[in-house]
């Protein structure tokens, strides 16, 4: 068994050396296509991360009228009895999980904090900012239940689903993901073709060996193993490179640039990166094995 292993690895090494440029090409295409695939997976994971983060938090804001409101439902600031009535109506809506009230003072404090250092903050007074009910829903999809109940009600200036703001961001990210999946798909096709072609060339270069192996009764596994392992070696190195690319994106792009500047959300952690790297490695490995076996069946009748 052990001597067999040494023999096979010797054959693999000979094969790789014989077609080094080809092996390098296969390795690089594996690295690029798996990286793109990994990026797509990471963007998807980030979208889920943000959804989890945001959909659990403030979902729907019901803004009350201020002094300066111009909406037809408003006639100056919403008075306290009206506010209490509205709160009661909100609690009566089936899908409402919880509701909190944010006063104008609280809204002001939050605003100042958000825009600290910006000139906007200096010109705002608490009276200009609307008080609001912050509502979480048992089912985040059923925003309309709240909207229909409260839009147009006296004392309510506007009902806003904050998800819609994020949905635009999510659309953007999903578009990004689609793009990287598309490129990854094209690159994977290239990878598969290249592996198949490499197998064909390798099978041709080693046709003497293969014919002797067949003649002396080597099993199909023994004949195909060196070829398949060649592709596997390329896939493993390519996967490792893709893993490094993904880790670099996490370390330098996400942790280095995005996280410090975009504080409104959380970002994917190392666990997601590890899963993505492992997943694309598994896909790369499978592609290498399946493609080389199919190619060998076709080109070497081994």
């Amino acid at each position: 068994m052990f001597s067999q292993l040494i023999f096979v690895s010797g054959e693999v090494w000979t094969g790789i050396r014989r077609s080094l440029t080809m092996t390098v090409a296969v390795t690089v295409t594996f690295a690029v296509s798996l990286s793109l695939l990994g990026v797509g997976v990471l963007v998807g994971a980030q979208v889920n991360e943000m959804k989890d983060f945001w959909y659990d938090k403030v979902e729907v804001s019901v803004f009350l009228c201020t002094e300066g409101s111009t909406a037809p439902t408003c006639d100056g600031e919403t008075p306290e009895p009206e506010r209490q009535q509205i709160e009661g109506e909100i609690r009566a809506i089936g899908v409402v999980a919880s509701t909190t009230f944010e006063t104008q003072q609280q809204a002001y404090a939050r605003f100042i904090e958000q825009f600290a250092g910006s000139p906007i903050a200096e010109n705002v007074t608490p009276e200009q900012l609307p008080a609001s009910f912050r509502i979480t829903l048992t089912d985040p999809q059923r925003f309309l239940d709240v909207s229909e109940a409260l839009t147009g009600r006296a004392g309510v200036e506007a009902v806003r689903d904050q998800r819609s703001t994020f949905n635009r961001l999510f659309d953007l990210l999903n578009g990004l993901r689609l793009i990287s999946f598309t490129f990854a798909g094209a690159m994977l096709v290239v990878t598969v073709l290249l592996v198949a072609n490499t197998m064909r060339v390798a099978a041709f270069a080693r046709r003497r060996e293969v014919s002797i192996m067949r003649m002396v009764g080597a099993s199909r596994t023994a004949i195909q193993l060196p070829f398949v392992l060649e592709a596997v070696v390329a896939a493993v190195i390519g996967s490792a490179l893709a893993g490094i690319v993904l880790a670099s994106i996490k370390r330098w792009v996400i942790d280095g640039v995005l996280a410090p500047s975009l504080t409104f959300t959380t970002f994917i952690g190392w666990q997601e990166v590890a899963w993505a790297a492992g997943g694309v490695a598994a896909i790369g490995l499978m592609l290498a094995i399946v493609t080389s076996l199919i190619a060998l069946a076709r080109y070497s009748r081994a």
Binding site: S3, Q4, F7, I212, V216, A218, S219, A222
Partner: peptide, 9 residues
């Protein structure tokens, strides 16, 4: 011929 059929070294 012996290696490829898995004979012991």
């Amino acid at each position: 011929a012996m290696q490829v059929v898995g004979q012991r070294s």
